[in-house]
Nucleic acid binder design. Structure first.
Lengths: 218, 218
DNA sequence: GTTTGAATTAAACGTTTGTTTAACTTTGCG
DNA sequence: CGCAAAGTTAAACAAACGTTTAATTCAAAC
């Protein structure tokens, strides 16, 4: 874990705020320097370049997030149902509390083709599925979950839903001109609904008797 | 509906390809002109500016997509279950067949705060929910769907899942160095699984008996 | 064949971009 | 204090950007 000075952290926080609001490309180093009230040259001085600053941001938040996610693996023994609910909670809480970084990451992820950022995101996606797989297999071993669960599917639903919900909230709040506490309240309510219904939906799906797949021939 | 000349359509198609691959900001007018084998000045000549070109792209694909989505409203009578499955099919098919535009739109949507693009996307989000609401209410009227379904939740799950699945496919294909037909095949299989399991999950959730919401006090 | 307006071109425009330079200030240590 | 390293600054840099200009080519109408 890299240690950063207060000034470095100030630059990183300011950059994250601007990157998430305006996008990485539309945010200039001058914007960051002005908002953080430091000289333009400080970014290059501390981080090397604008892109390296982005990488530093990714590394910082990734270590935090993956740490959170992995901690659930070492939770006290709990039922398969509880494990699934725990996973949903951890994902929602993490994506919600770090939504600025999440928005930046999702946006940049959509155009990456290679490089350190691509590798980090790919690793995280794989980790997410591993986490999901554990809980599912536990339930299958106990015979309470259906056998044909697809983890690739489940993790897409979980993460996709949270991101889409957050994006929708932003649009609704923006359109209704909600600000500050009002916007946060609106978002919080929607997230609570998402949390509750997502759990119910996952359990309903996981405990559903398997159907014959009509798309298969034979 | 605006009519475009062949050359205008060539520019628009090329722009969409580059925008979706590299992102709007990282694609220069020179890139587009070079790829389309036209002069740099033609973009401004035909569309006025780079941003107006993006708006033209949005308008063009929006009219197509909203048309597709609305057509389902006038489908022959079908059961509530069929209606839900139809909606899932239409969404997946549309997002899949126009995934380049979908990727561009999702990416730009995440940083929009106002303007014509914001309005277009907001209108589409609202339309999506209206469509979903119809099917849900039909099922509720017949007494086969639970009463506490949240449409905001359902549409987030549907659209978010598809987008996340497509994003994951791109990452997996990129990482496994799949190309052309191989990558398409991989994606097609994942989409089929998504389609099948999403339908099962939605039906399982919608027909689930309502639970007492523990988060409410009273 | 001439004319007229659209299509097309290469070149240039002024800005903004990320980055670097070189000078200056501050800080910490012997 | 004296000095070296780190921090900080304003200024300058070349490159890339979106856009415009002015000249030229083209195609159709008369």
């Amino acid at each position: 874990m890299i240690e950063y000075s207060e000034k470095q952290l100030l630059i990183m926080d300011t950059a994250l705020q601007l990157f998430s609001e305006k996008g990485y490309d539309k945010t200039s180093i001058r914007d960051i320097a002005h908002a953080a009230e430091v000289n333009i040259a400080m970014v290059s001085y501390y981080f090397g370049s604008k892109e390296k600053l982005l990488e530093a941001l990714f590394k910082k938040h990734f270590t935090f997030i993956t740490g959170k996610l992995e901690s659930i693996l070492y939770e006290k023994d709990s039922t398969a149902f509880e494990k699934v609910e725990q996973i949903i909670d951890v994902f929602i809480n993490t994506l919600y509390s770090r939504q600025r970084f999440n928005r930046l990451m999702t946006r940049e992820a959509s155009v990456l083709q290679e490089g350190p950022l691509f590798d980090m995101i790919f690793e995280m996606k794989t980790k997410n599925r591993k986490l999901m797989e554990r809980a599912v297999k536990a339930g299958q071993r106990l015979g309470v979950f259906r056998k044909d669960v697809n983890v690739f599917f489940l993790s897409s639903v979980l993460i996709g839903s949270v991101n889409q919900m957050l994006a929708n909230c932003r649009y609704e709040a923006q359109n209704a001109k909600l600000e500050g506490a009002e916007a946060e309240n609106f978002q919080q309510k929607k997230i609570d609904i998402l949390r509750s219904h997502l759990k119910q939906m996952f359990i309903a799906y996981l405990t559903q008797p398997e159907l014959i797949d009509k798309s298969k021939n034979g």
